[in-house]
């Protein structure tokens, strides 16, 4: 388990290092996601909280068309995953059931015509902080294995972290390990509590609050769980006048 996570983290962060620009980075992540998940391709749509779409990236031009399709038609797995804040898993797009292909009367036939047989959409989010959606495309029907599903969640988590860290990496040109996933000593809940606190301290969005906490951990070369504990214990305070 830990090894898979390390491999995926390495793969995604290498995309961040290889591409200075965000479109290039997102395209790289899509390629890496497709490779890890034995998919024919992947797409990412960055979205703001009101559902407005920002940039879109995909592993290749065919996938980019499928990714674009849902915004043209106004329906699709990406939008549903964003709205419901849950993964949307459709292993057989040809299944007309209302919780499978039948869910999207316009998207399904159009995407099928483009060769799509299965689609799996994963929100790029931390709690209520939403950044967008990762879509995984396959040209053959069939479910993700338990291992692939776990890997897809890891890809989504690492992509969120990489998106939040973009400005840090651009400045430092390196990716330092700050995520320790330490459940035992600094339980993860504390990191999310700290995120809520910093949001109020700085008057910024939840996503920005997490980006600031992570940037602080990078700058001070500390573990995220330690930084979070200090914030919750009020030993560390983020001021507006000290960016």
């Amino acid at each position: 388990m830990e090894d898979r996570s390390a491999i995926i983290t390495d793969l995604i962060t290498r995309q961040a290092a290889a591409h200075g620009d965000r479109p290039g980075f997102l395209r790289g992540v899509c390629g890496a996601a497709a490779e890890v998940l034995s998919a024919s391709g992947a797409g990412i749509s960055i979205m703001t909280d009101d559902g407005t779409r920002g940039e879109t990236a995909a592993s290749d031009s065919a996938c980019e068309r499928i990714e674009e399709l849902q915004f043209i038609l106004g329906e699709g797995p990406c939008m549903d995953a964003f709205t419901s804040r849950r993964p949307v898993l459709v292993p057989d797009l040809g299944d007309p059931a209302p919780d499978a292909g039948g869910r999207w009367p316009f998207y399904t036939p159009a995407a099928s015509a483009g060769g799509l047989r299965a689609v799996f959409a994963f929100p790029l989010q931390i709690g209520a902080a939403r950044l967008g959606v990762l879509d995984v495309f396959r040209d053959r029907p069939g479910p993700l294995t338990a291992g692939e599903f776990a890997d897809a969640l890891t890809v989504a988590d690492v992509t969120v972290a990489a998106l939040l860290d973009r400005h840090v990496q651009a400045r430092d040109g390196l990716v330092r390990e700050i995520d320790d996933n330490n459940y035992a000593d600094g339980y993860r809940a504390q990191l999310f509590q700290a995120q809520g606190m910093v949001m109020v301290q700085l008057g910024v969005s939840l996503a920005e609050a997490m980006a600031r906490i992570r940037a602080h951990a990078y700058a001070q070369e500390r573990r995220l769980s330690d930084v979070a504990r200090d914030i919750v214990a009020r030993r560390l305070h983020f001021d507006t006048d000290k960016p």
């Binding site: 419901s84 849950r86 931390i126 709690g127 969640l153 999310f192 809520g196 606190m197 949001m199 109020v200």
Partner: peptide, 20 residues
Amino acid sequence: QGALNSRVVIEQAKGAVAQS
């Protein structure tokens, strides 16, 4: 996954209310 994410939202809200 939806349930796990809801729990994260509650922790975030706890932090926001604690701070404010």
